[in-house]
Simulated assay, not measured.
Amino acid sequence: MDERAKGRGDAQAVRERVRGFALELPGAYEDFPWGESVVKVNRKIFVFLFLGHLVAGQGDSPPTATVKLTDPGAHAHAMSAPGALPTGYGLGRAGWVTIPLGAPDAPDAELLCDWVEESYRTIAPKRLVAELDARAAG
């Protein structure tokens, strides 16, 4: 199986797979504040999907996914990913983690989708989380 088939390697393909997964969650919709893609539920962001940009003095940054992980184990796992950082603007203190996409040793799309679902469960209203659970059970 090649790297793309496992969900690694092509940052844009990984980003689109994660984006598609996020948009399938109950009540999820895409918005574009700051000209970048975010997915929201109940007017609250649960995943940022930045395409990457020029970082002063550092060259281009890779595309990233940013999720809120309040479970200590998931948070620690995400922070162990190569290049992962607590999210800026004080969001890192609340459990937000920014993860670069597409590097050979980056988390695969399936794991990223698991983290997106956890972020969704943290942000979404209980009735939508219950709807997600009902889908999974049915």
Rank of each mutant, 00 (worst) to 15 (best):
K44E: 14
P33R: 01
G57P: 07
A136V: 14
G90E: 09
L23K: 09
L101Y: 02
E36Y: 06
T98C: 07
L85R: 12
D10M: 06
D105H: 12
H53E: 12
A13M: 04
T66P: 03
A78C: 01
V38L: 00
E3D: 15
A109Y: 10
G92R: 04
D10K: 07
Y89S: 08
T70N: 00
V38N: 02
G52R: 07
K6I: 11
L101P: 02
L25K: 05
E117N: 01
D60M: 15
A28G: 11
G57R: 02
D133M: 05
G88Y: 12
C113Y: 12
S119C: 03
P107R: 09
R19D: 02
D31T: 14
P82G: 05
R8P: 01
V47N: 01
A74Y: 08
R17M: 11
A56N: 11
V39F: 08
E117R: 00
T87P: 01
R43G: 05
L101K: 02
G102K: 01
L54F: 13
I45S: 01
S37T: 15
F21H: 10
L69V: 08
L101N: 04
A74T: 10
V116Y: 02
L111M: 11
A136M: 12
L69P: 10
L128F: 03
P100K: 03
Q12Y: 12
W34S: 05
Y89H: 15
S37F: 13
D114P: 07
S37A: 15
D71V: 07
A124N: 06
D108I: 04
F48Q: 06
F48L: 05
A13V: 10
A109M: 10
M1V: 13
E16D: 15
Q12M: 13
P86H: 04
A11T: 03
D133S: 07
A5T: 15
S119K: 02
A124K: 08
V116Q: 00
I123S: 04
G73Q: 15
A74D: 12
A103F: 12
A94E: 13
T64S: 12
G90Q: 05
G138K: 09
I45Q: 01
E36R: 12
F21I: 06
E3H: 12
K6W: 13
R135W: 15
V116G: 03
H53W: 09
F50N: 13
D108N: 15
V67H: 09
A74E: 13
V41T: 14
T98Y: 06
D105T: 14
G20P: 05
F46S: 07
Q58S: 13
E131D: 03
L51H: 13
R8A: 04
P26H: 04
D105I: 11
L49E: 04
A56Q: 14
V55F: 14
A136Q: 14
R93Y: 10
A28L: 09
I99N: 00
A134T: 02
L54T: 11
T87Q: 02
S61D: 06
W115G: 05
G20M: 12
R4T: 09
V116D: 07
E24T: 14
A13G: 05
I123R: 06
F48I: 10
H75I: 02
G35Y: 08
